[in-house]
């Protein structure tokens, strides 16, 4: 048995329970997508953790993710290219998966 068993996840790799999240879990999930977490990633992850705590919802779509980042961290961070570079694929989905949030509801 592994010393720190992986918390339960759904078929898309999202944590079943956001409370199961830890930085180590984030590292492990990021690794699956070959993402090396840097300060820049952690800033967004922290934003998402705070966002979920305050609003009990993941940003529902990619556009709203970008908007919320912009509103909170400013124009340079709230930029779809910037976020896509950090979290390839659909940034809202990739970032929420790593931050342990539920899957964004409107992200196809």
């Amino acid at each position: 048995m592994n010393a720190t068993p992986f918390p339960p996840r759904n078929n898309e790799g999202f944590l079943e329970n956001p409370a199961d999240w830890s930085p180590a879990v984030a590292q492990a999930i990021a690794q699956e997508s070959d993402i090396e977490l840097t300060e820049k990633h952690w800033e967004i992850i922290e934003f998402l953790r705070d966002f979920y705590k305050a609003h009990e919802v993941a940003p529902p779509s990619n556009r709203l993710f970008v908007k919320a980042v912009k509103e909170t961290l400013g124009d340079a961070r709230g930029d779809s290219i910037y976020l896509m570079t950090l979290f390839p694929g659909t940034p809202a989905k990739t970032a929420c998966r790593i931050a342990g949030l539920p899957r964004p509801t409107n992200c196809l």
Partner: peptide
């Protein structure tokens, strides 16, 4: 359920 006031309070951030 999720607390509606918390969901609602994201409205401003979303524009």
């Amino acid at each position: 359920q999720k607390t509606v006031a918390k969901n609602l309070s994201a409205a401003g951030l979303f524009g």
